[in-house]
Amino acid sequence: MVSDPIVGIWHPPASSRAVAASLHVGEEGIVQARDVDGKPLSATPGLKIEVSDRIGGIVRRLTFLDGSVFETPDNDGVDKALKALKRRPGVVHELERFRPRLALFVIAVVALSFAIYRYAVPLLVEAAILLTPPVVPKLLSQSVMISLDQTLLEPTKLSQQDQAAIAAEFGRLAEIAPRGAAGYVLNFRGGGAVGPNAFALPDGTLVLTDELVALAGSDREAVLGVLAHEIGHVEREHALRRIYRAAGVAGLIMMIGGDIGSGAQDVLVQGAALMSLSYSRDQERDADRYAVQLMHAAGRDPLAIARFFDLLATKLGDSGYADSFLSTHPPTPERIEDTRRYAEEVAAGK
């Protein structure tokens, strides 16, 4: 089995010197490069010679054991020689050839992109959440609490009785939630720049500002409704979900970036940012519904949270707080209406 010589160029090891040469596969499976006079330049057993992958029509590179290189544009000749040596030529190049089959690939890409965004990303997020050890949200939450206390928040000015009353009612609410009362720590703080606000950290640490309590006035149920909403964020692990999702989408865009060019990549990044806005709005809606269910299950007024949104919209609509509960929880008419309708359904259904 001696194949036809393949014509190309031979470079000595690590050198740019180019020698016109030809490649021969001998009887014992030895691959040899020879110059135009037939003088051998280098030889290596066929199974040990390193052959670069075939890509389009670019020159093929065969590296001998001594480091010298034979280059040839004769890709078919090299593939034939590889077959003679019982070595498999690459499969990927076969797929890449311009054939009608490529149209199927296009359809597959479109369908798979959609499927990944719709199903695989949420699935990976769930997997990541299951794999996250509890110590991660704990450490994160502790450091947030410390940095918030040092910068934005102030000590509470709420009276001991008020604190105790809210804490007791909150405890009865948290008892019903899956994590239980022990899974939550309620902190009272002066809101300072963040104003009337409440937020939850992923380990179950909740913060309630004096300003929010004052805003609700005599309507304690409304304060509990807001706390139930924050419990919803913790129970559904919204914060971790958002992070994993953002990272997953960024990762996907990064992987595909080199293939679509930097301009199209920027468009995707902007699109992803817009989608994440709508994603966090969905999370708020989810927490609202959770609050309604929890309040109902605790025998409280499920309409309280909707009432609080109304209060926010009327009292805070033109107040000076730039970064209040409003900016992260915009009480749009749709949202109030949705929550109210859901609360009425829940109240009537049970």
């Binding site: 670019i58 890449e96 990762g251 595909i256 293939d259």
Partner: peptide, 29 residues
């Protein structure tokens, strides 16, 4: 086009792992 669409398809099918191979094939081309 053939190299590109196979790069994209395999990158998606392998959830990004192939992208490293895709980069090498693209740059080599």
């Amino acid at each position: 086009f053939g190299i590109w669409i196979v790069n994209v398809l395999l990158t998606i099918l392998t959830l990004g792992i192939y992208s490293a191979w895709a980069k090498v094939r693209r740059n080599r081309y």
